[in-house]
């Protein structure tokens, strides 16, 4: 689930690009301080997109500072927005912990033992994410349901993607009220659905080789057959991007289009499709 949802940078205005970098930098920095320095290596574009959505919906004023970055050995533009980052980082830590648990349950032998040794670390970072008990419950339940469907070899794409999408929906809409909550829920849902499906599509050959669950393999049989239905799959993934964009548009009706909105529209109209084309080309090459 890494890095599918990002803007096409060439199409951004320079100020939008700088804002995007500043959000990325700010999130990485905040995550390092609040959760663990280790998570800075795990930070990915999907969480930056969730943070951006949050910033846009809560009308956070862009507060950009220059800060020294020890990993780049220079000063970088950083956007300060503690509230939005706190939610995103905590959700990230909780997801990491339950993913790790899942991973241990699925592996055997020495690997299982080694993975078990890392568990206290994940547990610690999860415990740092305090004050999100409700969110933790919904993440745990969502992943448990996903696991159940995966074991039952569920073939309905929508049903499996739904479990993951509900998780991102809850993350995106956490603590919001009224129409903002509705918009955030729908946008979060479709970010999750998009990420789950594109990730599964990206993994068809790996999963076929290892025999792991993949909804497309269950539905169509082999990776070869999945590629024969590429149009159908691409359509349904793009449908999620369209749904995201059309719901998100409602937010701009009241408040006008800001730089955050421009970046999010870039992601949903261009970036998401570009990532999908890349994934598709990669699968075609392996054919």
């Amino acid at each position: 689930m890494f890095g599918y949802i990002r803007p096409v940078q060439g199409e951004l205005l320079v100020k939008e690009y700088e804002l995007y970098r500043a959000v990325y930098c700010g999130l990485c920095r905040y995550g390092g301080k609040r959760i663990s320095h280790f998570t800075r290596f795990f930070l990915n574009y999907d969480f930056v997109a969730l943070a951006l959505l949050r910033l846009a919906l809560t009308d956070e004023k862009p507060n950009v500072e220059k800060k020294y970055c020890p990993y780049h050995l220079k000063k970088k533009n950083t956007l300060r927005a503690d509230n939005a980052y706190d939610l995103t980082c905590s959700a990230f830590a909780i997801l990491l912990y339950y993913k790790a648990l899942d991973d241990i349950r699925d592996s055997k032998g020495v690997k299982r033992f080694v993975k078990k040794l890392t568990l206290p670390f994940f547990k610690r970072i999860k415990n740092r994410a305090s004050g999100y008990g409700e969110l933790e419950n919904s993440i745990r339940e969502g992943l448990a349901k996903l696991d159940e469907l995966e074991r039952a070899k569920e073939a309905r794409l929508d049903a499996v993607a739904d479990c993951f999408a509900k998780i991102t929906q809850d993350i995106a809409s956490f603590g919001l009220e009224g129409s903002k909550k509705l918009i955030a829920s729908q946008c979060g849902y479709h970010i999750g659905r998009y990420i789950y499906l594109i990730d599964a599509y990206d993994d068809i050959y790996d999963d076929e080789k290892s025999g792991s669950y993949n909804p497309f393999l269950v539905k169509y049989g082999t990776a070869e057959a999945v590629l024969k239905h590429a149009d159908e799959i691409k359509t349904t993934i793009i449908d999620s991007l369209n749904a995201f964009s059309s719901v998100y548009g409602l937010h701009t009706v009241e408040d006008g289009v800001t730089a955050y909105d421009q970046i999010l529209f870039n992601i949903s109209e261009l970036g998401g499709r570009a990532a999908l084309d890349k994934v598709h080309a990669r699968s075609e090459n392996r054919r």
């Binding site: 059309s246 289009v257 870039n266």
Partner: peptide, 13 residues
């Protein structure tokens, strides 16, 4: 048709 279109407010669509 509505499935095929994003937001009319988007600068890209």
């Amino acid at each position: 048709d509505s499935l095929n279109t994003g937001s009319a407010y988007s600068p890209y669509s």
